[in-house]
Design a protein around this nucleic acid. Sequence first.
RNA 1: GGCGGCAUAGCCAAGCGGCUAAGGCGGAGGUCUGCAAAACCUCUAUUCCCCAGUUCGAAUCUGGGUGCCGCCUCCA
Length: 488
Amino acid sequence: MQPEIYLYNTLTRRKERFEPRRPGEVSIYVCGVTPYDDAHIGHARPAVFFDVVRKFLRAAGYRVTFVQNFTDVDDKIIARARERGMDPLELARRYSQSYLEDMDRLGVERADIYPRVSEHIDDIIRMIQGLIEKGAAYASEGSVFFSVESFPGYGKLSNQRVDELVAGARVEVDPGKRAHLDFALWKAAKPGEPAWDSPWGPGRPGWHIECSAMSLKYLGNSFDIHGGGLDLVFPHHENEIAQSEAYTGEAPFVRYWLHNGLVTLGDEKMSKSLGNFVTVQEVLKEHHPAFVRYAVLQHHYRSPMEFGGEQLETMKRGWLRLNRTYQQLAGAAPAAGVDEARKAGAPEELLHAVQRTRERFFAAMADDFNTAAALASLFELLREVRPLLGQSPDDGAKAALGAARAVLEELGAGILGVLTLDPLDPAGDTGGRSDELVRELVNLIVEIRSEARAARDFARADRIRDALQRLGIVLEDRPDGTRWSFKE
RNA sequence: GGCGGCAUAGCCAAGCGGCUAAGGCGGAGGUCUGCAAAACCUCUAUUCCCCAGUUCGAAUCUGGGUGCCGCCUCCA
């Protein structure tokens, strides 16, 4: 199944038909993190989104190569390491490891390659040399700068005019630069900083060059998708284009530029420099990873996403319902293909619903990765299926439930990763607020109340329930007995 | 100052020229229940920030406003 895929290309500011460089193969490079602190939700969003992109493309029949870098040589890493009296590379190693672990917990599949700047100094130096030879860069006082003037297409990604940029520039004037907009490819070492030998003396790579050098190395001169946050469009990606195309002499460097919207907190961009961030680890203390994915995918990837507490709680109800139904389904029937279910006598109407779900899901995803619409298709299937779950289904209905289960597994669990079979609200979940003694006491009280109910002493039963409610304990009387849990 | 993006029901959120404006939350009514809760069913925008225009037809295109957000300095 290889549907026609359309995606919004930042370069052209239009939705375009997706045609990879080589049929059936997709090469993706996503800008990774500068590991000097814990990952926050603003990092989780692109990670989850591009994880879904990758899984969807694979489901659509493409072979996907996925590269994500670590910028492990950087001013902020050096500064942080100095504060802590640590080796910068060691600090970067530690935080890149914790980044990977956080993303693992979010169900993000590992990239095929995680190139690091520190391991590609030679490639970077070679590229800088090439740029100097081509007249696109110049050495100055131990540093090397890219000459923006030498690249006529500068500004095409961010739609900026060079003269306007100069007018609004807030960049400090670097004495070694010939022109305002020129940017560093190689920075001369300052005392006490990590440095590598180069033809221009000891130093380290500038910020933008690494992504060019490493993406070209692993994916070739014109790869398919380059992703990252909207805040990277300028100058980072603009500069990447200039360096790469000047170096290879080939355009386009990247066929499709995809940029995800930013995560906001209180309508302000979440970022480390503003200090208003929520780390992935903090979020995962309170929320299931599959729910975090759900919250991300509930928004279209290009829209801004507010990550506020109350909104999450209301979103969670929907997610819980989706998952409860999925879990009931998993308990009710073995997964089955549609054809298989048809042979087992499943009602045609339900099988159509299952197939329609799949079609809608793929159509939504093929339309610029519309994950919100894709999720809606799952809810629509649930509506068809739920009435059957209340009753004891006959064999045909059971087969249909199996088909529904299979499609949810494929789409909701496999591609989106928003469904889980983990227990969601096990009876007696203490939420970390209680110990064995409290649990036993509540069990005892509930037991006594059940005896009162059996004796039809409802006044007493209600009094117990009300009293427990005031203590933050919620009771549910079900056909199979009373269940209790702490109030959220 | 320049460049982008966004504005759709009480809230979140799809929709990108034409079937009844997805879906979720909430709300209302109902089934079930000793009563609740949970679950399930039904209903819940004659209308898409404002004003002009293009078109047989616009939430969707064009022009002009208004309001938010982002980028132009490190940032996913």
